[in-house]
Write a protein that binds this DNA or RNA. Structure first.
Lengths: 221, 221, 221, 221
DNA sequence: GATGAATGAGCGTTCATTCAT
DNA sequence: TATGAATGAACGCTCATTCAT
C-alpha cells in the first residue's frame, strides 16, 4: 500500500476514465454525422476530425465502421427507453403514463433530434447480423417496456391484450409511428404551435390504437 | 399519307413502344435489386445484367442512379395507391373501406414484397432535393387519398377531423406503421396463421387510432 | 454476310486483340515492378502508371493484386520452360542437352533478368491457395520436363534413376540452384568473364549432381 | 570495494543479464512469427504479445522492424553454421563430413523448422542495405565454412578447386538447394520414409556436384 | 526502462459515370 | 441508340513508429 501502488492504481483509473471519455467522444461525433449525412456517406475521417483524434484512434476503440453504428444505436436506444420510462412513471394511470411517455418522446427526442430516431430504423438495413441483432435487441426491449407498462397492475387498473400478439403489435406500431415522425418531420416545417399540436394528435392516435387492442379488467382504463 | 410516312409513323410508334418497354424492364430490375440489397449496395452493372442490356443503355434511359430510384419509388407509390384505392372502394362504409385497404396493403404488399415498402422510406435519406420531392409527393398523395376517403360522403357517412392536422397525422401514422411492419417482418418469422393475425391486429390498431381523431357527423361510423 | 456483319466481326476481333494487348501491357508493367521492388511494395497505382492506364482498368483485367502476380508467374514460367526446352533440343546427348539448357537459362534469364527468377520463388510465400497452386503447377511441369529430358531414349542413351524419387529431387535441385543464383547474383558484381565462368561452373555442378542420381543403361551417357 | 559498489555491480550485471534475456525472448518470438506468417504479415504487436512485453519495449531493444529481421537472420545463421560444423567434424573424410553436415542440416533444420531456412532467403528482398549486408555476411561465412572444410588437410586428403570460383559456386549451390528444399517441402507431403530417402538423395546430389568441381591431390577423396 | 494508446501515411478495391466505336 | 471498357475519385482499414505517463 505504498504510494507507488496507490499511484499506479490511480493512473490506471485515470486511464480507464480517459478511455471511456474518448469512446464517448467518438460515439457523439459518429452519432452527429450518421444522423446528419447518413451512415454510408459518413467517412471515418470526418468522425475522427470532429472527435479531434486520428483515424487510427477510432479503430482503437471500435472494430470497424459498423461497430461504431452499433455503439451509436445502443446509446440512442438506452437514452430513448430511459426517457420514456421516466415520463411513464409520472402518469396517474397506465394510459396516462403512455400518453406522457409519447409526449416526452416526441418533445424531447423527435423535435430536438429527429435524426437520432431515424438512425434506429433506417440505417440498419442490409448489414451484418451484429447490426440486425442490435436492432432486434432494441425492439425486444421496447416491446418488453410497453408490455410491462400495460400489464402492471398500477393503480389497480389491470389490462388484458385482446390477443397474444397485441403486445408486439403495439410496440411495433408505436416505434414505427415515431420513426415515421422522425423521417417526415423535416418535410413539415411547421410553426412551433402546429408542431405541438401534431405531437398531441399523434399521441391521441397512438393511445386510440392501443385502446383498440386491450380490454380493461374493470372495463375502465 | 404515302406508305413512307405511314411506315415511319409506325416505326416511330414501335420505337416508342420499345423504349417504354425497355425503361420498364430497367425499372423492374432496379426495383428488385434495390429491394433486395438496398439502394447503395446495388450496382448499375447488376441492374444492367438483370435487364439484359448494357450499362451504357441504363444511362440512355435514366440520368443517373438516383433518377432510377426516383422512378422506382414513383412506380411503387402508384401501385400502392391503386391497390389501396381498389380495396377501399369495395368497403361498405368508410372505416370498413379503410380496413379493407389496410388488409390489402398488408396481404398484397407487405407480405409478398416487404422490401418494396422499405424502399419508400428507408433508402431515400441523405439524397438530393429531387428524391426528397419524390417522397414528399408520395406522402402528399397518400395524405390526400386518406383525406378523400374519410371525407367523402360515401354511403351517407360524413366524417370530420378533430383538428386541421388530423389528416396529415393519420396519413403519416398509417404509412409509418406499414413501413415499420415491412422493416420488422423478417424478424418475426412467424407461422402463416400468426402473420394473418398480426395483419388483423395492425389494422385494428390503425382504425382505432383513426377513430380517435375523427368525429362522425351523425355520431355513427 | 453484308458489310455490316463483317464489320462487327472485324471490330469484335480488333476488340479482342486490343484486350489481349492491354492485358499483356499490364503484365509486363507488373512483372517489371514486382521484380524491381518486390510484390508487396509494388502499388497498383504504379503498375497502372507504367502501363499508361487507370487503376480501375487494371481491375478490369485482373481480379486483384494476387491475380496479377499469378499471371506474371505463369508468363515467366512458360517463357522459362520454352527457353530451356529449345536449348535442350540442340544438344547431342541428354546430358549435353541439359548442359545447354542450363547455360541458356543462366545466360538468357539469370544474367539479363535475375529478378524474374526470384519472382517465381520468393514472392509467393504466405499467400492464398491460388498462388501456391500456380507455383506448384510450375514446379510439377519443370519436374516433368526434367524427367522427360532424362528418360527419353535420345540418341540411344537410356537413363535410369537410382530411385523413384530422383526425378523430383533433381528438378528441385536444379530450380533451387537457379533461384539461388538469381538471388545472389547482385551480390557478386563480378566482371563479365567471371560471370560466364560462374555459369559454366554451376552447370558442371548441376550435371555432376545429376550423374550421381542416374545410371546409364549402357554405362555411357 | 564497499558493499555499495559490489551491490551496484551485481545489480548492473543482473540488469545486463535480464536485458539479454529480454532481447533473446523477443528474437525467439519474432523468429517464430516471421517463419510462420512471413516478415511482412507479422505485426510488431503480435511479436510483443508472444514475448509477453509491450510494443514500446520491442523498440527499446530493436531500432525498427527490419532490425529485428536482421537479428533473427543472424541467430539462424549462427545456429545453422554450428550445426553443420559439428556434424562435419564427426566425418571420417572431407566428403564424408560434408555428407554428414548435409544430412544434419536436412534432418535437424529443414525437417523440423523448414520456415527458418526460408527466412534466410525469401524474406530479405527489397530491403535496406543493412539487411542485404546481413545476408551477404551469412553467405560469405558459409562460403568460408565450405572452403575451409574442403581445403583442410584433414586425414591427409587435400582437395583443389577446379577454378578460383568453385568455392563460391559450391557454397551457393548447397545453400540454394537447402533453401529450395525448405520451400518445397510442404508441397511434397511425403511419408516419413520418403522424406528420409529424399534427404539422402539430395545429399548425394550435393556431393556429386561438389566432386565435379574439385580434384583430389591424390586422386582419392 | 516499460507501457500501450495515438498517430497518419499508405494502399487495395469499388463503382458511378463517360465516351469511342 | 447500344455497347462495355476505361476512368479515377473515394474510402475503409492497417500497422510501423512515437511519446506522454
Amino acid at each position: 500500500m505504498g504510494s507507488k501502488k496507490n499511484g499506479s492504481t490511480r493512473s490506471a483509473l485515470r486511464r480507464q476514465r480517459e478511455k471511456e471519455l474518448r469512446r464517448s467522444t467518438i460515439l457523439t461525433a459518429a452519432e452527429k454525422l450518421f444522423a446528419q449525412k447518413g451512415y454510408r456517406k459518413t467517412r471515418i475521417e470526418d468522425i475522427a476530425d470532429i472527435a479531434e483524434i486520428s483515424v487510427g484512434s477510432v479503430y482503437g476503440h471500435f472494430k470497424n465502421k459498423e461497430d461504431l453504428l452499433i455503439g451509436v444505436l445502443d446509446d440512442i436506444g438506452m437514452y430513448t427507453r430511459k426517457l420514456a420510462r421516466n415520463a411513464f412513471m409520472e402518469g396517474d394511470s397506465i394510459l396516462d403514463g403512455i400518453e406522457r411517455a409519447g409526449i416526452a418522446f416526441f418533445e424531447e427526442l423527435c423535435l430536438p433530434y429527429p435524426e437520432k430516431i431515424r438512425l434506429l430504423f433506417d440505417e440498419s438495413i442490409g448489414f451484418s447480423d451484429h447490426l440486425i441483432d442490435a436492432r432486434r435487441n432494441f425492439m425486444e426491449k421496447v416491446t418488453g417496456d410497453v408490455h410491462n407498462a400495460l400489464m402492471q397492475a398500477k393503480h389497480g387498473a389491470g389490462l388484458k391484450y385482446s390477443s397474444g400478439l397485441s403486445g408486439e403489435v403495439i410496440a411495433v406500431c408505436i416505434t414505427s409511428i415515431y420513426a415515421g415522425l422522425g423521417n417526415y418531420y423535416k418535410f413539415w416545417k411547421k410553426q412551433p404551435e402546429d408542431t405541438m399540436a401534431i405531437g398531441a394528435e399523434v399521441v391521441r392516435y397512438i393511445v386510440g390504437g392501443i385502446k383498440s387492442l386491450i380490454v380493461s379488467n374493470e372495463e375502465r382504463l
